[in-house]
Design a protein around this nucleic acid. Structure first.
Lengths: 225, 225
DNA sequence: ACCTGAACACCGTTCAAGT
DNA sequence: ACCTGAACACCGTTCAAGT
């Protein structure tokens, strides 16, 4: 049942490379403009200006096409995160966190429907290992940044933050929001709460004043598992 | 292209009602155990022990079946939220927030793959109005609870919190996590950060606590819509 | 009122024939 | 090496025939 997801062969000639690019671009265009339901191989081939046979010469399944699009987008995400961390070197925690959140919003909001449809498509694809590798790569990048905040389990924190940020951006995108600053501010509060609020080992005291939060900044208890 | 999503007719006899239930249960079972890709009408009918024809007598499309499952699950969510708020009447903010988060986790983690697949399926269905109505209903329920925290736009806050909580539970579920207490604690920090940290804006006096970690450069917009 | 299952249409995929 | 498009298989949906 589980058909292949890997590209079938690499194009060796220039026109073949152009064919592959046309296929990927056509598929992405359909995902952004028409949605997942409209993504069928005949439609992709037609829009790309090639025959279905050519499509299947390079991609053994429709899912292989979506996989390649997802892989490219993931590479761009890692690059964007890397760049935003480099750009923020020497700045304060708050500034660097804001850079990260802004990068995530930019990455996810440019083609909102495409982004969402790709996330949905991921559920159909056997990409769990790659997803874990991606999270690990991001954890590595973000690791030394978060390390200063006393976060013990960076892998868990990275997973949680990605989930939180993604969930909020997607929901906002679906609701038609366009104000990135407003969105970034709300995400920033959630992320800061996650990273900076004291872990409730035995919850006796109610928090509710930022004074208490500020006191724990940079010296919070570590995650454990 | 947009085919109907509404049930075709209501069963009048007991055996017909049993047929409808069998169809819905079979579909849910397949979504939990085999995934969205394995959900086809022939398979549903076979597992339900009825013919495809019978299936189409009550549901005009495959999507109508998924829609009914989603609607039932949403009703259970509203009920669970209502009950958790009632159960926590008179308790502190922290205790009631913990009750809400625990209810959400229980609701979403019981059949994790089913829950995730239904969310994915929502992307294919024209349920935006109903989703907004659901969020409004939840905002109403949670409204007076959040009101005490000085949250201005309860609708936005509700949307964000649902997105945040859902995203984190889904990610944890996919990663195979089973420790609900640990998860609830992490979600609690993010939710508290979102609700309690000062907004990075001029309008902080209504919050009652203006000093804190989030005092940053610039002045972002306040909640509005 | 309810059920059945063969038949039809559509879309993913293949393959024999071409340049 | 690359391309084409008719043909095949599978799944969503219908419908004539049944109880």
């Amino acid at each position: 049942m589980q058909r292949s997801i890997e590209p079938r062969k690499k194009p060796r000639q220039a026109r073949a490379a152009a064919t592959v690019e046309a296929i990927l671009q056509a598929a992405a265009h359909i995902l952004e403009r028409e949605g997942l339901a409209a993504l069928n191989t005949n439609h992709i081939a037609e829009r790309a200006g090639v025959s279905v046979g050519s499509l299947y010469q390079y991609f053994p399944t429709k899912q292989a096409i979506m996989t390649e699009i997802i892989r490219r987008k993931r590479r761009r995400l890692v690059d964007a995160i890397t760049l935003s961390l480099q750009a923020g070197e020497g700045e304060s925690f708050d500034e660097r966190l804001d850079r990260l959140i802004a990068a995530a919003i930019e990455h996810q909001i440019e083609w909102p429907r495409l982004a969402r449809n790709l996330e949905i498509a991921e559920a159909f694809l056997p990409l769990q290992e790659e997803t874990e590798a991606l999270n690990q790569a991001l954890a590595d990048k973000i690791g030394c940044f978060l390390g200063h905040q006393g976060i013990g389990d960076v892998a868990v924190a990275t997973m949680d933050l990605i989930a939180l940020v993604r969930g909020m951006i997607d929901a906002a995108g679906l609701a038609g929001e366009t104000d990135r600053t407003f969105l970034a501010e709300r995400i920033g509060r959630a992320a800061r709460g996650y990273l900076l609020l004291p872990q409730a080992a035995v919850k006796t005291r109610s928090m509710g004043h930022s004074k208490g939060i500020a006191q724990r900044r940079g010296s919070g208890p570590t995650h454990r598992r």
